[in-house]
C-alpha cells in the first residue's frame, strides 16, 4: 500500500473534486505511515536530547530559587534575582569577566590568524612530501589529551628541571616559575593552545584553497602577479567564507572559555589571572555545593553567549554573504 502513495499523488483524480495541495496534517500522516520505523528510531536520540539538554535548560530556573535538596528544583522557594545580584555585587565578578575576556581575545588574536598563515604557506609548497610531513606533524598534537598537554607544560616549564629553565640557566638567566607568574600565564595558555591546534585548524583553510578555481591562478600568472600578489588576490578571497564562519564562531564563543585546560593549569600563584567563569562555577557549585548561585552564574554566561552569537551572526549577514544561519 504505502509504496504507492508517492505515485498516486500525480495521477489524475477520477472524482471531480478540486483537491488543494496536501495540508500539513496530511503530510504528517502520510510521512508517519510511510516512515513509522524511522519515527521509532528517533525516539531514543530525541529522548537523549530532552533529558540531557532540554531538561537542564528548564532546571536552570534554579538560578531564581533557593535550592533545597528535599523539595527538589520545582518545590524550592522562589527568590527572584537574589543570586544574580549577589554575583554582580561580588568582588569576584569583575575579575572573572575580565580574565575570561582577556584570555579569549588573546586566543582569538593569535589563534585565528596563525592557522590561516600556515595554510597559505603550505599552499605555496611544491614538494608534496614536505607538505604532507608538515601537515601531519602539526596536526598530531591535536590528539594529545588536555591532561597530558598540561603535564607537558609543567614538565617543560618546571623551575628546577624544565628544559626551558635549563636553557635559560645555561645562558645566564635565573630560573623562572613560569606557571606561577601572572605576567606569563596568559601567553603560556594561548601559545600552547596554538601549538596544539594550529595544524587541525589549518585543514579547513587548506581545503578551501584546494577548491579555488585553477583558472584564477592561470589568469594571475598571465597578468604577471607575484607570489605575494597571488596570495593577496586569489588565495585570501578563496578562504574568506571559511574564515568568516570560523571568526563568527570564535567571537560568539568568547565567553565560553573552556574549563578543562584552565582548571588543570591553575595554581594558587596564578589564580588572580586564571580564575574564569567556568572554573568558578565548578568550584562554587560542585565543590561548595552552592547550587543556586552557581546556576545563576552559569545561566548569566550562557545567555550572554547566545546574545553574542546572534549579534555577531547578524553583523556577518549584513557585511558579507556568509553567516551561520
Amino acid at each position: 500500500m504505502n509504496t504507492r502513495t508517492s505515485y498516486s499523488e500525480s495521477a489524475p483524480m477520477p472524482v471531480k473534486v478540486h483537491r488543494r495541495a496536501p495540508g500539513m496534517r496530511d503530510l504528517a500522516r502520510r510521512s508517519l505511515k510511510r516512515h513509522w520505523q524511522l519515527y521509532l528510531l528517533i525516539i531514543l536520540p530525541v529522548a537523549y536530547f530532552i533529558i540531557f539538554k532540554y531538561i537542564p535548560m528548564f532546571n536552570a530556573v534554579l538560578a531564581f530559587k533557593d535550592y533545597n535538596v528535599i523539595e527538589g528544583i520545582w518545590g524550592s522557594p522562589w527568590v527572584g534575582t537574589k543570586y544574580f545580584e549577589l554575583f554582580f555585587e561580588n568582588p569576584a565578578f569583575a575579575t572573572l569577566i575580565k580574565n575570561t575576556l582577556i584570555i579569549s581575545f588573546y586566543s582569538l588574536a593569535v589563534g585565528f590568524p596563525i592557522p590561516i598563515l600556515l595554510a597559505l604557506a603550505l599552499n605555496e609548497v611544491r614538494s608534496r612530501r614536505f607538505k604532507k610531513t608538515v601537515q601531519m606533524i602539526t596536526y598530531a598534537p591535536y590528539f594529545i589529551s588536555t591532561v597530558v598537554m598540561v603535564s607537558m607544560l609543567m614538565l617543560f616549564l618546571s623551575p628546577r628541571l624544565g628544559i626551558i629553565n635549563l636553557i635559560g640557566n645555561a645562558l645566564g638567566f635565573d630560573s623562572v616559575n613560569f606557571l606561577g607568574d601572572t605576567g606569563m600565564f596568559r601567553t603560556i595558555y594561548v601559545f600552547s593552545d596554538v601549538w596544539q591546534s594550529m595544524g587541525y585548524s589549518a585543514v579547513i583553510y587548506l581545503a578551501a584553497l584546494a577548491g579555488v578555481d585553477p583558472s584564477l591562478y592561470e589568469a594571475a600568472k598571465v597578468d604577471g602577479a607575484s607570489r605575494f600578489q597571488k596570495i593577496l588576490n586569489v588565495d585570501i578571497p578563496g578562504i574568506m567564507p571559511a574564515a568568516v564562519i570560523i571568526l563568527i564562531l570564535s567571537v560568539g564563543n568568547i565567553m565560553a572559555l573552556g574549563f578543562e585546560k584552565m582548571y588543570l593549569m591553575q595554581n594558587p600563584l596564578n589564580l588572580p589571572v586564571s580564575e574564569i567563569i567556568a572554573t568558578y562555577v565548578y568550584k562554587v557549585g560542585l565543590l561548595n555545593a552552592n547550587y543556586s548561585f552557581a546556576t545563576a552564574v552559569g545561566l548569566f554566561n550562557s545567555v550572554i553567549n547566545l546574545v553574542l552569537l546572534i549579534v555577531v551572526n547578524s553583523i556577518a549577514k549584513r557585511v558579507s554573504t556568509t553567516s551561520l544561519w
Binding site: 536530547f49 533529558i51 540531557f52 539538554k53 532540554y54 531538561i55 537542564p56 535548560m57 528548564f58 532546571n59 536552570a60 534554579l62 528544583i73 567556568a278 562555577v281 565548578y282 557549585g285 560542585l286 547550587y291 552557581a294 546556576t295 552559569g298 545561566l299 554566561n301 550562557s302 553567549n305 547566545l306 552569537l309
Partner: peptide
C-alpha cells in the same frame, strides 16, 4: 539549538 544554549553545569549535574 543545544549547540547555542545550554542549561549549564549544575542543572545537568542534577539531572544525572
Amino acid at each position: 539549538f543545544t549547540m547555542l544554549f545550554s542549561g549549564g553545569l549544575i542543572p545537568t549535574y542534577l539531572v544525572v
